[in-house]
């Protein structure tokens, strides 16, 4: 640990972020558990940004290969996570069809 002055601000930010994550979903109804899990699954797709930087700064072929894998996996996390969440939530948006004879 060489430079602690850069680590501490990040730790404080992480603590606040943990609190935010906890509070934001603390009163969620059971009905929304699945979409919320899927939605948070999408949000950690931000890993794609890190993967892009890792591949972008990679120099050796091995680093490039693993970096490429990271980008592929991260991109799948992003689009797949988005589409799954969107499709689940679409169900909540559907206009109610009046049943026959009602």
């Amino acid at each position: 640990m060489t430079d602690l002055s850069t680590v501490w601000p990040a730790v404080y930010i992480a603590m606040l972020a943990a609190f935010t994550g906890y509070v934001v979903i603390s009163r969620v109804p059971v009905m929304l558990h699945t979409p919320l899990m899927s939605g948070s699954n999408f949000i950690h797709g931000i890993v794609l940004v890190g993967a892009m930087v890792a591949l972008g700064l990679a120099t050796t072929p091995l680093e490039q290969a693993i970096g490429f894998l990271a980008v592929v996996l991260g991109a799948a996390n992003v689009t797949g996570g988005y589409v799954v969440t969107e499709r689940i939530l679409e169900m909540f948006h559907r206009p109610r069809r009046p049943g026959p004879g009602v």
Binding site: A14, A17, A18, T20, G21, Y22, V24, S40
Partner: peptide, 8 residues
């Protein structure tokens, strides 16, 4: 984003 997902 990672910590928020971790906590949530």
């Amino acid at each position: 984003a990672g910590v928020i997902v971790g906590a949530a």
